[in-house]
Amino acid sequence: QEELVKAFKALLKEEKFSSQGEIVAALQEQGFDNINQSKVSRMLTKFGAVRTRNAKMEMVYCLPAELGV
């Protein structure tokens, strides 16, 4: 569980995922086979993730800066 949270936060820091499906796929690539869209959705809510525009003006998920991840 701890490893999943770390990987999840690291992915969001990249600010390149525009959908929950993309986050699920990226986590599965890292070996988290039991991850699915509903789990990702709950984690996004739990950590207060928001959708914002990145440098390329794409809408992407990211974590609020005050979490200091």
Rank of each mutant, 00 (worst) to 15 (best):
K13A: 12
K6H: 10
V69M: 10
Q30T: 04
S41C: 04
V24I: 09
E58G: 05
S18G: 13
A26H: 10
N36M: 04
E3A: 14
E29R: 12
T45P: 03
V40N: 00
V24D: 01
R51E: 05
R51P: 04
I35C: 02
S19D: 08
S41A: 14
E14Y: 06
I23G: 01
K6T: 10
E15R: 06
N54M: 02
Q1M: 12
L67G: 13
E3Q: 12
A25F: 11
L67K: 13
V40L: 05
V50A: 07
E29H: 10
S19V: 05
G31C: 02
E2D: 13
M59I: 11
K56T: 08
Y61K: 02
A65K: 12
F47Y: 12
L4C: 15
L12E: 00
K46S: 12
E29S: 12
M59E: 10
L12G: 00
D33C: 10
E66H: 09
V40G: 00
S38F: 12
G68K: 06
F8E: 00
G68H: 11
Q28F: 08
V40W: 01
A49G: 05
T52R: 15
S18D: 03
T45N: 11
E3D: 12
N34R: 09
I23C: 02
R53V: 14
A10W: 07
Q28K: 14
K16P: 05
R53K: 10
A25Q: 13
A49W: 03
V69T: 13
N36C: 04
T52P: 02
A55Q: 09
F32G: 00
Q1R: 11
L27N: 00
A25Y: 08
S19G: 05
V40S: 00
K46A: 14
F8P: 00
Q37K: 15
Q30C: 06
E22Y: 03
E22H: 06
G31W: 02
L63P: 03
E22A: 12
N54I: 02
N54P: 02
F47R: 01
A55I: 08
L12A: 01
G31M: 02
L63F: 06
A49M: 03
L67A: 14
A49S: 04
K46T: 10
T45Y: 10
L63S: 03
S41T: 08
Q28P: 00
V60Q: 03
D33E: 13
V50Q: 09
N54E: 02
E66P: 08
F8M: 07
S18T: 14
K9G: 04
A49R: 02
R51F: 13
R51Q: 10
S38M: 12
L27R: 00
K16H: 06
M57L: 11
